[in-house]
């Protein structure tokens, strides 16, 4: 059981790290501001979840676990809020990039 937990936690750690890294790459590769934000939200969602989750598993059932989870909780609450604040500011400032307005009657992909 302990080995399984251990292995799982390692896997989560490495996986989380991977997602964080991919998010980072995305933030560099993406062509304009909004798309970069999408990439960065990768590092704000699954990345921390996996990394901190892995740490939580590592520490067993103790106060540390609770603290790690508290960190995760706060990250998951504040992260999107900050992203929203930024996205809002950018969109008010008129930053567009390649974004177009969505039209419901888009012929290419009819709505289900």
């Amino acid at each position: 059981m302990a080995i399984v937990l251990d292995a799982l936690s390692w896997a989560m750690l490495v996986g989380g790290a991977l997602f964080v890294l991919i998010g980072g790459i995305g933030a560099l590769r993406m062509p304009d501001f909004f798309t970069r934000m999408h990439a960065s939200s990768l590092t704000d969602s699954l990345g921390p979840m996996l990394v901190l989750g892995g740490l939580a598993l590592q520490s067993g059932w103790s106060l540390e676990t609770v603290k790690v989870l508290a960190i995760l909780l706060f990250l998951l609450i504040t992260g999107p809020t900050a992203t929203y604040a930024l996205g809002h500011a950018a969109s008010v400032a008129g930053l567009k990039g390649g974004t177009r307005e969505y039209r419901a009657s888009d012929p290419r992909e009819p709505r289900a």
């Binding site: 706060f74 609450i77 504040t78 999107p80 809020t81 929203y84 604040a85 809002h88």
Partner: peptide, 18 residues
Amino acid sequence: SLKSHLIPHVVGRVLIPF
């Protein structure tokens, strides 16, 4: 102020006591 910004407002208010 950010009164008009709903999301930061709500989240922020929750966070302040913490």
